[in-house]
């Protein structure tokens, strides 16, 4: 049975208040919605289509969430929570994929191309996630901006709204965060921190 948007919203609020059981109920719902979105990507994915991503993610929120119930003053909170949730789900997927393919010391009998690409993507996602955790220890604001934009799929203006910052500040923070993360993820660089 598919719960109503009100119920989903309530679950999100409960989770943000520390109710882990609410998360258990949320995950399958959001998962199936994300899969629908993902296959949407796969169908129309071609250079030039990437700009629609943010719109698509918003669509997912709209479908899942009762916008009336999420009142204006809660919006920032809500998007913050939603981005966290997305991050958690995507990293879970990436980890499962990554370890399923590589783990257990099993010989890699059929490392076909699909697996190679997916595996590289899974590894990349996990690497970004881990570097972001590190960034959060000394610059939580930048880490959160990346979480909202990269994992939450929000655009610059939405991120600015949620963070209560000017778009210009968000842009500056985003650029510095990107440069730092990129450096962390580049194997050839010296990772002195």
């Amino acid at each position: 049975m598919i719960p109503s948007p009100q119920e989903v919203t309530q679950l999100l609020v409960d989770w943000s208040n520390g109710d882990e059981q609410a998360l258990e109920k949320l995950l399958p719902l959001v998962n199936s919605e994300l899969r629908r979105l993902a296959s949407h990507y796969m169908r129309r994915e071609s250079p030039g289509h990437t700009l629609q991503t943010s719109a698509l993610v918003n669509e997912a929120y709209l479908r899942l969430i009762d916008q009336q119930q999420v009142r204006w003053q809660n919006r920032a909170h809500f998007f913050g929570i939603a981005a966290q949730l997305m991050r958690r789900i995507l990293i879970d997927h990436a980890r499962r994929h990554h370890y399923a393919k590589r783990g257990g010391g099993a010989p890699q009998v059929s490392l076909d191309e699909t697996a190679v690409v997916s595996q590289e993507r899974a590894a990349e996602l996990i690497a970004v996630h881990e570097a972001l955790e590190q960034l959060a220890t000394f610059d939580p604001r930048k880490s959160r901006i990346v979480e909202l934009r990269f994992f939450g799929g929000l655009n610059l203006d939405e991120t600015a709204e949620v963070m209560e910052l000017s778009p210009r500040t968000v842009q500056r923070e985003w650029r510095a965060a990107k440069a730092w993360l990129y450096r962390m993820l580049s194997p050839e660089e010296n990772h002195a921190t």
Partner: peptide, 19 residues
Amino acid sequence: RAESFIEAPALQLAAPLLV
């Protein structure tokens, strides 16, 4: 060098893992 890095959301990167 990071111009396009993480500009596309994670969901897009993860799409092949999800479908």
